[in-house]
Amino acid sequence: MKRPLLIVVAAIGLVAGSAASQEPPPAPDRALPDAAQEARAQALFEGIRCVVCQHEAIADSPAVIAADMRGLVREQIAAGRSDAEIRQDLVRRYGDFVLFKPPVRLATWLLWFGPVGLMLAVAAGLLLTARRRRSESEALSPEEEARLADIMAEADLRPDPDAKPSDH
C-alpha cells in the first residue's frame, strides 16, 4: 500500500516541480507613443538576435530577455539615441553575436569567412583525392608480358574473354 502511494506522490512532485521551474511569461510590450519612433524600434528589433533563442529576432522571440531587450531599445530611442549607438550598447552588453549581421573585423572573420574557407578546403581535398585516384598503372614491359604469358600457359588458366591483348 505504501509503494503505490509513494509513486503517486513522486509523480505529483515531478509535475509540480516542472511547472514551477518554467519561466513566467514576459510583460506585454508597451509601444512608443510616437509612430515614427515605434517604426524605428520595430526595424531595429528585426536585426537583433535573442540571446536565449539564438535563431530568432527579438521581435519574434517569446523569451523574457527578448522582451527586456525590446524595452531597452524603446527606452534608448525615446532618449534620443541613434540606431548605431543602440547597436553599440547591445554589442557592449551581449557581444557581436547579438547582431544578425556582425561587423567585419579581425574578431569576426571566422563568422564571416569561416564557412567559405571550410567549403574551399573540402573542395581542394576532394580535388586532390580525385587526382590521386586517376593515376593509372604503367603498362607491362615486353619481358613482363612474356613472363606473364608463360605463367598463364603453365597454370592452364582460362583467359578472360573481356581482356585486352596486353592483358593476356
Score class of each variant (00 low, 15 high):
153 A>R: 13
58 I>T: 05
134 R>W: 00
33 P>D: 01
45 F>H: 13
73 V>D: 04
7 I>W: 02
109 W>V: 15
158 R>Y: 08
163 A>L: 02
162 D>I: 00
19 A>N: 06
151 I>H: 06
140 L>F: 10
6 L>S: 11
158 R>M: 12
77 I>Q: 07
43 A>K: 12
4 P>L: 09
77 I>Y: 07
58 I>A: 08
124 A>H: 01
142 P>K: 00
103 P>C: 05
62 P>S: 15
3 R>D: 11
56 E>C: 00
23 E>G: 00
35 A>L: 05
7 I>K: 10
18 S>V: 03
76 Q>W: 14
11 A>F: 04
102 P>R: 11
1 M>V: 03
53 C>T: 01
130 A>V: 00
143 E>P: 02
56 E>D: 02
68 D>Y: 00
157 L>W: 15
20 A>Y: 01
18 S>N: 05
79 A>K: 09
144 E>P: 08
151 I>E: 14
128 L>I: 07
4 P>N: 09
97 F>D: 11
77 I>M: 04
69 M>W: 00
52 V>D: 11
85 E>I: 04
78 A>Y: 03
23 E>I: 02
5 L>I: 15
49 R>L: 00
94 Y>M: 04
80 G>W: 06
167 D>S: 12
43 A>H: 07
78 A>S: 14
100 F>I: 08
121 A>Y: 01
60 D>G: 08
75 E>S: 10
140 L>D: 15
63 A>M: 10
130 A>W: 13
64 V>A: 13
21 S>G: 03
42 Q>K: 11
60 D>H: 08
31 A>S: 09
9 V>E: 10
6 L>M: 14
103 P>Q: 13
11 A>N: 02
155 A>K: 15
158 R>Q: 12
81 R>C: 04
91 V>E: 07
47 G>E: 14
3 R>M: 06
84 A>H: 07
85 E>Y: 04
52 V>F: 05
65 I>L: 11
149 A>Y: 03
165 P>T: 02
139 A>Q: 10
28 P>I: 03
41 A>S: 12
128 L>T: 05
44 L>C: 04
76 Q>M: 14
17 G>S: 09
51 V>C: 05
49 R>A: 02
110 L>C: 07
105 R>S: 04
74 R>N: 07
115 P>T: 06
83 D>N: 14
150 D>E: 14
65 I>Y: 03
52 V>T: 05
88 Q>K: 15
104 V>Q: 06
21 S>F: 08
154 E>Q: 11
50 C>A: 08
23 E>A: 06
145 E>R: 15
149 A>C: 02
85 E>D: 10
73 V>N: 09
123 A>F: 06
63 A>D: 14
159 P>F: 02
24 P>Q: 07
67 A>P: 05
119 M>H: 03
75 E>K: 07
